[in-house]
């Protein structure tokens, strides 16, 4: 059990106690919501762990490295950013996937770009965004988000190198 998870667990436990002290019914409802969300996300979480097992166990690391490895530079970043933009993976399960790819030899920049476009750009939400906010607004927001994701990735690559 890592220090990070201990800190997080303690922090949330404190929030829970404060909530309980303030309002018992609301806290009960919060726990019910948490339970239902866990139940609903459960299959996806387990599936992504199995996929991680498949990737780490059976895909040669050099495949990953040759696609989005650190020495692939901007091409790796673009591939990862593009994948992140079109794939629909809930962020909740994307982080463990990203960490396993990092261990397999993916570049930090590429992974940063992947996570950022994955969360900021919703390809499957685009029709809905266009319908509600207009083509110009939706395309501008998603297009600029893509550029911002690349910028974030490049700066992270420089800082974390």
């Amino acid at each position: 059990m890592s220090v990070t998870s201990i800190v997080i667990d303690v922090l949330v436990a404190v929030c829970l106690v404060i909530s309980l002290a303030k309002n018992k019914d609301k806290t009960k409802l919060a726990l019910k919501i948490a339970y239902n969300a866990t139940k609903r996300m459960g299959p996806s979480v387990l599936a992504i762990i199995a996929v991680i097992g498949l990737i780490v166990g059976f895909i040669p690391p050099k495949w990953i490295a040759s696609a989005i490895g650190g020495d692939r530079g901007i091409f790796g970043v673009l591939i990862a950013a593009f994948l992140g933009a079109i794939l629909f993976i809930p962020a909740l399960i994307a982080f463990p996937l990203a960490s396993s790819l990092l261990q397999m030899g993916a570049g930090t920049m590429a992974i940063a770009a992947f996570i950022t476009t994955l969360t900021m750009i919703g390809f499957i939400f685009l029709p809905l965004e266009i319908k509600e906010l207009g083509k110009r607004f939706a395309l501008l927001r998603n297009g600029l988000s893509f550029l911002v994701a690349i910028a974030i990735a490049l700066i992270m690559g420089l800082v974390l190198a």
């Binding site: 949330v12 436990a13 409802l29 919501i33 948490a34």
Partner: peptide, 15 residues
Amino acid sequence: FILPAVMVLMGLFAV
């Protein structure tokens, strides 16, 4: 170790 904490936090935000 992490998922229940994250879910509980989301539940707390929701209420």
